[in-house]
C-alpha cells in the first residue's frame, strides 16, 4: 500500500493540515488509488533524460530597484482576520518552558 494511515499522518504534518482521525482512512484510500496510478511512471526506463522543470529557458530577470507603491499598510492589513495597532496578531510563537 503506497499511502497508509501512518503515511497520511506524516505528510499531513509536513503540509501543516490537520486531519481528523475519522477522515484518515478515506484520505488514505483515495490517495493510495491515485498514487498507485501515478507509480506507473516508476517502470519507465528514462534514466538519461534531462528533467524539464520549466518550459522557458529561464534566466534571472532584473529590474530597477524602485519603490512604486508605499504606505499601503492600512490597505494590506484589511485582509487580516486579527490585527492590532497596525500589526498582524499571532498566537505565541515560542513555547514557554
Amino acid at each position: 500500500m503506497a499511502a497508509d494511515i501512518k503515511t497520511i499522518k506524516k505528510i499531513a504534518d509536513l503540509a501543516a493540515i490537520f486531519i481528523e482521525e475519522n477522515e484518515l482512512e478515506a484520505y488514505a484510500a483515495q490517495l493510495d488509488t491515485i498514487i498507485n496510478y501515478m507509480e506507473e511512471l516508476k517502470n519507465l526506463d528514462i534514466g538519461d533524460t534531462k528533467p524539464m522543470e520549466h518550459i522557458l529557458q529561464m534566466n534571472n530577470v532584473f529590474r530597477e530597484d524602485k519603490v512604486t507603491g508605499q504606505n499601503m499598510r492600512n490597505e494590506l492589513i484589511k485582509n487580516a482576520n486579527i490585527a492590532k495597532d497596525g500589526y498582524f496578531k499571532v498566537p505565541a510563537v515560542v513555547d514557554l518552558l
Partner: peptide, 24 residues
C-alpha cells in the same frame, strides 16, 4: 497531500523527478 508526498524524501526522485523527465 499528493504534492507533499511526491516531494518528500524518498519519493522525490522516483515520482517528481520522473514526472519532469516525462515532461521533457
Amino acid at each position: 497531500l499528493l504534492g507533499t508526498y511526491a516531494l518528500s524524501s524518498g519519493y522525490q526522485d522516483e515520482l517528481y523527478k520522473k514526472a519532469l523527465k516525462v515532461r521533457s
